[in-house]
């Protein structure tokens, strides 16, 4: 029987949320397509990852473990997964549609000569193919597409599927990691981490609170951070705020920043220019807080609050903490 693979998205064995979502989807579609689900773990820290993978179905896991993955940029992953694909010929390979996942997917696909569909938010099995749903043009158009080559390489956006636990035993299959010198040409010499305050990553957060020029200065981002922390959310920013140097570029949402589709997106002091909307309009629920009742962001909002953010946002954060009982 053919296999449907999930490439585990993790950092040193710390399995990211999207992996649970993908493993859940993989179980379902493998069933519908008569394929065996299997996971692929490439990196370090498998002992740590094993438990998470087991919570989401377990089953066969190809484990390629080597310190080299942490020493060089992505090429070891690309080469290892590409040769595993050539050897085992899976029918479908799912990657997380995040920066590294898309990079590795694209590298593997070009090495084995197949296609990739990225930024997928929904899937449907039709015979041997998985029909992918994705938004294009900043969410203005929805397309259905499929990979014609083999394997079908598909990158699934975080928050597209609900993760459902189904404990199962992990059956480990060790994969030999032998790297060519060419895989070692781009070395990671330093990892610089900014203080993130323990918040989730913008790319995969289920809730995002974003701030814009309405905040009037970098120091006021703490108002947005405080609301984010009350909700367990990530912090985003409009380009106006980023260009003014108030918040890092990694947090920018929009056409020249990240495209996100969280369960909940709260825009604070953001007007809703088309380039900002291009990065967030596929969010499931949108809340806007703006003092200008005519601001275009309200056209997208499921709940719009016309008011002064400096009053409303701290009061909202307190109210949420109160209701959460802390």
């Amino acid at each position: 029987m053919g296999e449907l693979w999930t490439i585990i998205d993790h950092e040193g064995g710390e399995v990211r949320k999207v992996s649970g979502e993908m493993l859940t989807a993989a179980r379902r579609f493998a069933g519908e397509m008569n394929l065996d689900p299997a996971a692929v773990f490439a990196g370090t820290g498998f002992e740590h990852a094993r438990e998470r993978i087991g919570k989401f179905g377990g089953g066969k896991v190809y484990v390629a473990e080597s310190e080299e993955f942490d020493r060089y940029l992505l090429q070891p992953q690309i080469d290892t997964i590409a040769s595993l694909v050539r050897e085992r010929k899976p029918s479908v390979v799912l990657f997380a549609s995040v920066a590294d996942g898309k990079d590795v997917a694209s590298g593997v696909a070009s090495k084995v000569g197949t296609g990739v569909v990225a930024d997928v938010v929904d899937l449907e099995a039709q015979g041997e193919r998985l029909v992918c749903t994705k938004a294009v043009f900043g969410g203005a158009t929805v397309t259905k597409c499929q990979v014609e080559g083999s394997p079908q390489i598909i990158c699934v956006k975080p928050n597209s599927f609900a993760a459902e636990q189904a404990p199962g035993e992990v059956v480990e299959e060790r994969v030999d990691v032998t790297l060519s010198d060419d895989a070692k040409r781009a070395r990671i010499v330093e990892r610089v981490q900014q203080e993130a305050g323990g918040r989730p990553a913008v790319e995969e957060a289920a809730v995002i609170v974003s701030g814009g020029r309405g905040l009037q200065g970098p120091e006021n981002f703490r108002i947005v951070e405080d609301l984010a922390d009350a909700l367990g959310a990530a912090v985003g920013a409009s380009r106006a705020a980023v260009d003014a140097g108030w918040y890092p570029h990694q947090n920018q949402v929009g056409q020249t920043g990240k495209t996100v589709s969280p369960q909940l997106y709260i825009a604070v002091g953001i007007s809703g220019a088309i380039q900002h909307r291009a990065g967030m309009q596929t969010s499931k629920t949108i809340v806007a807080i703006n003092k200008d009742g005519e601001a275009p962001i309200f056209q997208l909002a499921d709940f719009g609050l016309v008011g002064d953010l400096f009053k409303v946002v701290p009061a909202l954060a307190d109210e949420i903490r109160k209701r959460k009982g802390r």
Binding site: G115, G139, K144, E148, I286, G293, F298, A301, D302, F303
Partner: peptide, 19 residues
């Protein structure tokens, strides 16, 4: 090696609540 099967405009969002 990828094919687009269908494309349609995203249905307009239902009007939300404005307070």
């Amino acid at each position: 090696k990828t094919r687009i099967l269908a494309a349609e405009a995203r249905p307009p969002k239902q009007k939300g609540k404005l307070v």
